[in-house]
């Protein structure tokens, strides 16, 4: 099917501009998220939930095991230390412009069989970062923590 009339008058209206009319989204952290962020904010600890049957520790915690659907309601402190499973070095910001200083993002495991937490690495350079690097969480001072993932400033190499 072809249109009998082609779009030729370029002075005509061609585009209509608009935006997303939603003002903002408010995401509750949920049941497991509430436990995780309150513990991080108030006690400075990282929590997970474990499914013994599947041998998986969920960090951040979930109230169910995604493999067997068991209810998980016991939260365990997995410590502040972890290990880099994989990483990427960001040289461009989200606007596409070059960053003054590259940022390193990593998936961090807390012992074997954990699900992995995405966070930033610090006190490490693109030259020295590697898979398997042992890291620990650097937390904001308690007074500045608000129950957000950014209450952890970054993870830095241990020792």
């Amino acid at each position: 099917m072809t249109f009998s009339e082609k779009f030729q008058k370029t002075t005509d209206v061609k585009h209509w501009l608009g935006d997303m009319e939603v003002d903002h989204f408010l995401y509750t952290a949920g049941i497991a998220g509430e436990a995780f962020f309150v513990a991080l904010r108030d006690k400075g600890v990282i929590l997970g939930t474990r499914c013994e049957l599947c041998g998986i520790t969920y960090v951040p915690p979930r109230i169910y095991c995604e493999h067997c659907f068991a209810e998980l309601n016991e939260y365990t402190d997995v410590g502040l230390r972890g290990r880099v499973r994989s990483f990427t070095i960001a040289r461009l910001g989200k606007d596409g412009n070059e960053l003054k200083k590259p940022e390193i993002f990593a998936v961090i495991d807390f012992g074997s069989g954990t699900t992995g937490l995405l966070h930033k690495l610090g006190e490490v350079t693109p030259e020295t970062v590697k898979v398997g690097l042992d890291v620990e969480a650097v937390l904001k001072p308690k007074s500045q923590r608000g129950g957000h993932i950014t209450d952890i400033e970054y993870f830095r190499p241990v020792g």
């Binding site: 995401y27 509750t28 952290a29 949920g30 049941i31 497991a32 169910y64 659907f69 209810e71």
Partner: peptide
Amino acid sequence: RRLQETGKEMSWQAAQMAL
């Protein structure tokens, strides 16, 4: 009107009940 659960948590609660 508002549930504290995330969408994933709600999905699990309903699916678990059906199972």
